[in-house]
Design a protein around this nucleic acid. Structure first.
Lengths: 340, 340
DNA sequence: CGCCTCTTTGCAATCGATTGCAATATAAAA
DNA sequence: TTTTATATTGCAATCGATTGCAAAGAGGCG
């Protein structure tokens, strides 16, 4: 098809009989240029299939029109972390970025990039960063915050860390989930999750809120440290839940992935869900509805999350003031939580 | 931290008392520059936290050191297409690209970018493209191929389309899967999948191969058009498999996602898997092992796939000759396929 | 007709790193 | 000592688009 070498703005200028400056402005649709001239130049550019050289433009303007998404997904958590979840978030970020005319740079586990800002911002690869995978206490994020470069984090607001976040209202979500179990007559409700992780900490807070509201005393023995994975859900169920000395009639798990592992193990042990143990999860993983029984869960609006990450990051880049976001969540009731 | 404005190569040159040219070569570790001088300049650059301006470099060299990954994931298929699968593939691509010093540009469903090559290559955003989501017959890919720009596709080799691919040996995988069902004594084996999709077409071929090898006649009624999704697996099971006039004692489905939907529906109808209907899937979705019963499936080496996509694309960019890749697959036997 | 305003266009510098070629220094050979 | 080969370094052009400022043209008004 087009085998001609790349055209430059000078070529278009020549073709149109105007200067490069005029072409530049015309292609931008600048008001400075006469309307007819603009249209004519645009037509010529289109006709000759001219594409502006992004590299040159970025260089000249010192902007990249690119945002970098960094996935810090360690093995530390369950490594499959939410597959579906991540994919949806990523897709939504990509769509929203494209919508604003930004490209998306993706990087997973940049273990050898100790200074994210240097790599992405200072070296002019991206104008800002979206970090996914807040982790427990990543010093890199604190360094980033100190350096004052534009970035935003998916996760939970943490008073002791000085960076902006977008995430779900984990505390309220957990509160509603556990309250539902209480309404359904459950008294000994176990919590499965890793409270060292910011978001999960908030979910534990919500769990405690719900118990308190119901007048049920908090029992630390019911808190079972579990990472995000199905396999850890499976294992902890075998080691703790099924231990004869352990008694519970319900479980609130911080992710549907965990629930899938739990239910697999319970079914092997012939423990009936929800009759003997009622369960509520978190995320509304697409699988939740296909599990047997269907998993009652807390749905996060991930697509909205992606959009907000992008919008707020762009605002930060433009110097506007931005606040933390805790998006509302929605309880999705299926079978696993039992009946009232 | 560093609030000083960005240093340029000229600054470093001045600090080191040499010319910019020398700095440029030294930072590249060029043999042209004296070893000690090189070390000294590198030290100075590090000390002052100098980062090369990628935008300027890309502009000057007319290379981007970036590859673009384009996800063409239409609703046409089951939209959740493989969640886990995609995430793993993407992660592997990202890692391998980083390993070669390339950045990764991500784009999902560029519906308004009718000419992918223009957008990414001509406008100097990327040096090459990786396309994921071969689809049935995307004319955009043919146009890309015609234009001669460097790209590669995840999927299946198609003689009538002129572009390079990396994918799994779908035909052999399907052959082994179906042969296993045959060995386990099954005679009427249904095929669930959309044969219009290149990869699935090969799986259908493998299915036919296995029947032929076993002397079982092919019955077109046993081929049930199904997209990739759990929900379509669920629905088609209700509409076709459970239809009283339909008889089968086994199912080969082209994705584990489908199997999950199938098993959900079968369990609702109290049909026992594998006793009444044996099932084999494809992909070895991380969930396959957590389903009840565990799903026997064909595992693809997705991480290897990601690596090969990147390596072969880079070879293409460098003008080397590259061939199609059909990676070997592995049958993973769990419970859903019954016992011999 | 001269002066002023407003619209439209062009000039030319600029962004920062790279690289072919020339220049210099140093060592080796004659 | 002169010539030649080799190792280092610098000069200066270059990549292509953008933009502040100046300039030219069009129209209005006194």
């Amino acid at each position: 098809m087009t085998k001609s070498k790349n055209l430059t703005m000078a070529d278009i200028a020549e073709l149109a009989g105007v200067s490069e400056a005029t072409v530049s402005r015309a292609l931008k649709n600048s008001e400075l240029i006469n309307k007819e001239t603009r249209a004519r130049i645009q037509a010529i550019a289109r006709e000759h299939n001219y594409k502006i050289n992004t590299a040159a433009r970025n260089f000249r303007t010192q902007k990249t029109h690119t945002i970098a998404v960094v996935l810090l997904v360690d093995k530390e958590w369950g490594h499959e972390v939410s597959d579906a979840f991540l994919m949806v978030l990523l897709g939504s970020i990509a769509d929203e970025a494209a919508h604003h005319g930004y490209d998306l740079l993706l990087s997973t586990n940049p273990h050898d990039i100790d200074d994210l800002a240097d790599y992405y911002i200072d070296s002019k690869r991206a104008d800002g960063l979206i970090i996914i995978g807040q982790g427990r206490n990543d010093p890199r994020l604190d360094r980033l915050a100190e350096s004052g470069r534009p970035f935003i984090v998916w996760g939970a607001e943490m008073p002791e860390h000085d960076y902006l976040t977008v995430g779900s209202d984990n505390r309220t979500g957990a509160f509603e989930a556990v309250s539902l179990l209480v309404r359904n007559g459950r008294k000994r409700i176990a919590f499965m999750g890793d409270a060292r992780h910011p978001e999960m900490e908030h979910r534990l807070d919500g769990y405690c809120d719900a118990l308190r509201a119901a007048g049920i005393p908090f029992d630390a023995n019911l808190v079972i440290p579990t990472d995000f994975s199905r396999s850890d859900g499976y294992m902890k169920t075998g080691h703790v839940i099924l231990d004869p000395t352990f008694k519970c009639d319900a479980i609130f798990a911080v992710s549907d992935n965990i629930v899938l592992g739990v239910m697999k193990r319970l079914s092997e042990a012939d423990v009936k869900v929800p009759e003997e143990v009622a369960i509520v999860g978190f995320d509304d993983n697409p699988l939740a509805v296909f599990a047997t029984p269907g998993i009652t869960t807390v749905r996060q609006d991930i697509r909205l999350g992606g959009k907000l990450l992008v919008r707020n990051l762009l605002d930060i880049i433009r110097g506007k003031t931005v606040d933390h976001v805790a998006m509302p969540v929605e309880l999705v009731v299926r079978e696993s939580c039992g009946k009232a």
